[in-house]
């Protein structure tokens, strides 16, 4: 099938792309839109490094065709924070050494963000279960879990202060 026009909302901005239906979303994001936060890790839907949000769900973008995401709302790590304004999760990953090589981190944080949207006050066990689809080969997860719990506490405190 020839290249097709697809329209996605990526990090709040409407983006038009031209690609074959067989193109995977991770490649469209990285190669066409220059959104290189989501990483290609295993490319077999195991490692979670390519995790993005599609319509409010955490999804491995190596296992979704861009055609399937036509019309969808996509959020990547770039949509959560910026170098000048880190997201609380990014701050806490830095503070608690939640990363070493950093390759899995965008997927981890994107997934953790959705987890905390659905369960703002998770137990340690719920965090571990909630990030079970993201692999890290450096940290042993201990500091990742700490970072997410610390982010949850800070987000909850900020919410309480605002109320």
């Amino acid at each position: 099938m020839a290249k097709q026009h697809y329209t996605l909302t990526v990090n709040g901005e409407q983006r038009d792309v031209l690609c074959e239906p067989r193109e995977l979303l991770i490649h469209t994001l990285r190669e066409q839109l220059d959104i290189t936060g989501p990483h290609v890790g295993c490319e077999t839907s195991h490692c979670g490094a390519c995790t993005v949000e599609i319509n409010g769900k955490s999804v491995k973008s190596c296992t979704v065709f861009t055609a399937q995401a036509n019309g969808a709302d996509v959020t990547t790590i770039e949509g959560l924070g910026s170098p000048d304004g880190l997201h609380v999760l990014q701050e806490k990953f830095r503070e608690h050494h939640g990363l070493q090589c950093g390759y899995c981190t965008p997927g981890m944080i994107t997934r953790a963000h959705r987890l905390l949207q659905e369960n703002p006050n998770p137990t340690e066990e719920e965090v571990r279960f909630g990030i079970a689809g993201n692999l890290c080969r450096c940290t042993g997860y201990q500091n990742i879990v700490k970072s997410i719990l610390a982010a949850a506490a800070e987000m909850n405190a900020a919410k309480e202060a605002a109320e």
């Binding site: 839907s45 979670g48 997934r111």
Partner: peptide, 9 residues
């Protein structure tokens, strides 16, 4: 079944 990301889809 699988992991959270897979269960969403």
């Amino acid at each position: 079944i699988a992991d959270p990301q897979v269960r969403y889809v």
